Structure formats: structure tokens, C-alpha cells
Amino acid sequence: MTIKRKTPTISAKEAAVRYLSRSDHAEQALRQKLLQRGYAEQDADEAIAYCQDYNWLDDARYAATVRRNGIAKGWGALRIQQEMTQKGVHEWLIRQQFEDDTFDWFEHARAVAVRKFGESVAETASMPQKEQARRCRFLQSRGFEFEQIQYALNIEDDYL
């Protein structure tokens, strides 16, 4: 049994503008959304070109927004990069967002740990290994690197 898609009632350009008026999208994500809604590939390409001409669709701006929002959510660089990849941001744009990075990911990891676990983060090294592991897993799931986790939780090298 095949499911018939209803023919779209508005043009691909109008649909693209509506999507972009609600939230910013990466080019690949917008293309996929238009194709899923039943628009022809050529119509989707024309709509994307139209939006890019008016600077309504800009992958670099979108990547910067994802980075900013990820930091605000307490994510590390690895999690932010994963989110960008999932949203269809080109690999070279992702690298560009983290090139010459002046953001202090170590202090960010510590701030996230303090927000989650309170001021007891400073005493993590004296806690049972099970609790240390739980805290490490939390920061790992947020996309922080091992060195950043060690710094944030004041854990010695031999533990990780």
C-alpha cells in the first residue's frame, strides 16, 4: 500500500519563506522539508536559491546560531558539532565555527557541572568512584572532552 502525497497548494518559494519566518534552517534541512512536503526537486532548488538571494537562508549564520544556542543549553563543542551535522550544516562550516575559538570550554564545563551538581564539584575527587563516574558521564553526554571534564570536576588523570 503506497501513500499518496497531496499536491501542495502553495508554491515552494512561499513554503520556504514560511518555514524560514518561523525559525532559521540549514539549506539541507530546508530542502529535505520541502521535498517531504511533495515539492519537486527543481522547485525546491529554486526556492532555496530565492531565499539565499534575499539572505533569508544562510548556513553560516545558522551554524553560529546553533553554536550560541548550544552554549546556552550547557553543551560542549562535541555536542554542538553533532547537532550541526544532524541539521545538515556542511563540514567546512562546522570547522570554521570552531577555528580560532576563543571561548573557554574548560570554564564552561565547570559552570555546567556547578549548575548540575552544586558547589560540591570541588570535592568530586574525594567522592566514591560511582559518583565520579556518574558526573563524568553527565558531562560526556553534554559533549565535553575528557580534559574539560577533568578540569571541571577536579579529577586526576589516572581516573579517566
Rank of each mutant, 00 (worst) to 15 (best):
F103M: 07
T7E: 15
K6Y: 03
A15N: 10
Q82F: 01
K116F: 05
D53L: 15
Q132L: 05
E131G: 00
R37M: 10
A111W: 06
R18T: 13
I10W: 03
D43Q: 15
R115G: 12
L30T: 01
D100W: 00
E123N: 15
A113S: 12
I149W: 02
K116M: 14
R95I: 12
I80A: 02
E91K: 13
T65W: 03
Y54T: 06
E119D: 10
T65R: 11
E91G: 11
A111I: 02
D101P: 01
R68L: 01
C51Y: 03
D59Y: 09
C136T: 13
R5W: 12
Y39K: 05
L30W: 00
D101K: 00
R5N: 15
I149V: 08
A44P: 00
Y54I: 09
F138W: 02
A72T: 09
T7V: 13
F117K: 03
R115F: 10
D59A: 12
E123A: 15
A111N: 12
A40F: 04
G88L: 00
A152F: 04
A47G: 01
E91Y: 11
I71T: 10
R61H: 06
R18L: 11
E27M: 09
T102E: 14
W105F: 02
C51L: 03
G76N: 01
E123I: 13
L93E: 12
A15Y: 05
D43M: 12
C136Q: 11
M84C: 06
A16S: 01
W105T: 10
R67C: 02
K87A: 08
S23N: 15
G143Y: 06
A113D: 09
A125F: 13
R67F: 04
C136S: 09
E27P: 05
A64T: 08
D104L: 11
D45A: 14
K73P: 01
Q28C: 08
E145N: 09
I94V: 13
D101C: 05
R137M: 07
T85Q: 07
P8M: 06
E147L: 14
P128Q: 04
Q42V: 11
L30Q: 01
Q150L: 04
A15E: 10
A122D: 14
L30K: 00
E99V: 11
I10G: 04
P8G: 11
G88I: 00
R110Q: 08
K87S: 01
L78C: 13
G118Q: 08
N69P: 00
D59L: 07
Q148K: 09
S120L: 08
